[in-house]
């Protein structure tokens, strides 16, 4: 039996943890799932602390929420935030089978464990008689020392494996600026480089396409990534604006094309995803190709 304070904490933390875990099942986006998982991890750490596992509680918060879940977030970032699930079930009623199996597993575990009879638990102070950390250390470096040595071997192997798996050899030499320019001339396409994004009186970010002489926006002047994400701005918003409304800070002079806004504009970093494909072609252009 436990004290009232612990019961209150349990009945706050427990349902919150279950809600966070359910977020893992039902969240549409992987980022939301990872964040609800981080919530569960923090609450688990707090529950460990109340159960007298001081060291484990701190390690849980440091290692799980600090390292593991942030690693998950990094991988979600690399793999693509919008890499959502495929919704087509290969098996009909797959979800219902899965839910029935999970609920059955829970019921089986609960029913078998509810029959177990435990001796009344000794107080936490008796378990942590010579301090939680010191007691745990005497176990790890005493009785479990070989397991501890094995974990060190496991960690080194895992680190090596991750490096080997994440490493990518460059199969072909990196093309230089000279080779990019030679290829453009050879193919006779966009010889002067791709057109720069549009520069308008009130706006010169890379998300706005430049206008062709007939007034239509040029697809080539903006990054493909922005177009795929539907983050492009329309030139009509800026080209029809009256000059009197222009803010002094946003005015770009028309003669220095779009060169200065590369790197200085905060929107520039969005387009660097495809720098491998387009960057060199745009880096050495003196004028646009229109």
């Amino acid at each position: 039996m436990t004290g009232t304070a612990e019961a209150v904490l349990f009945w706050i933390a427990g349902p919150t943890m279950v809600l966070g875990a359910l977020g893992l099942v039902f969240a549409k986006r992987a980022v939301y799932a990872a964040l609800s998982m981080a919530l569960v991890m923090i609450l688990l750490g707090i529950v460990y602390l109340t159960q007298g596992a001081d060291f484990l509680g701190v390690i849980q918060i440091f290692v799980y929420t600090g390292a593991v879940m942030m690693l998950f977030l990094f991988v979600i970032m690399l793999v693509g935030v919008d890499a959502s699930d495929t919704t087509i079930d290969s098996l009909r009623a797959h979800k219902w089978f899965a839910l029935v199996i999970a609920v059955g597993l829970g019921l089986l575990l609960a029913s078998s464990l509810s029959r177990a009879v435990f001796a009344p638990p000794p107080p936490i102070s008796q378990m942590n008689a010579d301090g939680n950390v010191a007691g745990l250390a005497s176990l790890i470096f005493g009785e479990y020392v070989w397991v501890f040595e094995l974990t060190s071997a496991l960690l080194i192997t895992a680190a090596l494996a991750a490096m080997v798996l994440a490493h990518r050899e460059r199969l072909t030499p990196k093309p230089t600026q000279r080779e990019w320019s030679r290829r453009r001339v050879h193919e006779n396409r966009n010889v002067a480089g791709l057109p720069a994004p549009g520069v308008y009186a009130r706006h010169n970010a890379v998300d706005t396409p430049a206008l062709l002489p007939d007034g239509t926006p040029s697809e080539l002047s903006v990054s493909r990534v922005l177009a795929a994400r539907h983050q492009l701005s329309t030139p009509e918003r800026y080209s029809s604006a009256t000059p009197g409304e222009a803010e002094p800070s946003a005015v770009g002079s028309p003669d220095d094309d779009a060169r200065p806004d590369r790197g200085t504009d905060p929107g520039t970093h969005v387009g660097t995803d495809d720098a491998r494909g387009r960057g060199p072609a745009r880096g050495n252009e003196g004028d646009d190709a229109r």
Binding site: V18, A21, L24, I101, A102, V103, L105, G106, A110
Partner: peptide, 10 residues
């Protein structure tokens, strides 16, 4: 047990 079952369902 509840958390384990939810993890299995996931």
């Amino acid at each position: 047990i509840v958390l384990f079952a939810i993890g299995a369902a996931t």
